[in-house]
Design a protein around this nucleic acid. Sequence first.
DNA 1: ACCGTAAACTTGTAACGTACAAGCAATTGG
DNA 2: CCAATTGCTTGTACGTTACAAGTTTACGGT
Lengths: 159, 159
Amino acid sequence: MSSADDVRLELLRELRSSAQLQHLWVMQAWQEEPGLHPAAGMLLSDLAKHGEARPSELAKRRLVDLSVISRQITQLQAAGLIDRRPAPEDGRASLISASEKGHAELERWRVGYLAFFEKALGGWDEGRLADLTSRLADLNADLRATIGAPENCTVHVGK
Amino acid sequence: MSSADDVRLELLRELRSSAQLQHLWVMQAWQEEPGLHPAAGMLLSDLAKHGEARPSELAKRRLVDLSVISRQITQLQAAGLIDRRPAPEDGRASLISASEKGHAELERWRVGYLAFFEKALGGWDEGRLADLTSRLADLNADLRATIGAPENCTVHVGK
DNA sequence: ACCGTAAACTTGTAACGTACAAGCAATTGG
DNA sequence: CCAATTGCTTGTACGTTACAAGTTTACGGT
């Protein structure tokens, strides 16, 4: 009941709002500039940042079940946006990377996205953004450590 | 392609992670200490913070469709956790508030929740938490202003 | 006072994202 | 060389949410 508790609940509240807003934001940006699906964009962006990766790595990074990634990969491959090759040392796995076309599409997505970003957060200077980002990253790291436990990030929640 | 762009995408990435982690976190906390459903807890907490409110207000604050709130209210009322009375000046609306039992239940929820919080973020001092919270609040405010447009917060996304 | 329109909410329904479970191919260890 | 394990795919169900239609109440003009 102390005020310290309220700080924590307040953070929780803002996180919730943030998640909700983010969803609306992304969907709105998407339908204003219909192109790459947001989830696909994020996945491609992840691939562009970290380079070639296996599906299971992607699942851990994106914090979703492997099955979700698997299907996304299927779609992106059908659209020709990613390249896939068997993992050299393990025939069960494959290595995913953004294709030429994928990079191009990602760039278009990014431009549209940043325009939308500018509209909402044009008043923020870069330092402010970087600051919030790094604090969020810290938070995420701690949560990940506590929640995700050692390895598998998908906390089996026993639906 | 400038580094400023990457800052923005990085923020987006962290927001996404944050949303995902938050979901896992809440669900995990819930099943470790099964009690009030997370959504119900947040709604009650909102009621406790802002006091009596109409369903439509709640929908705006929580950034979800009115229908969602309507059903949540139905459930909470069935559980006796909220009080509901017709709005004095408008027979179509009603006023919702946390009941005695609701406050008690909320308190239990909060305690369990904060314990979980402590486990993950015990190392954070209060100032750090407050700081992140206020920055997030700023972000949310700007997003809300851009996205939510004038009134209704549910951005019709034309599913 | 009455009727049409609009507003607040409820209920019905569909879509989307996700997790869980079962299955399959490839690898590893004894 | 076979059993157990790992990495992924596919099947399926659930939860959350939005959208649409329906119901009741309020409001405004004539």
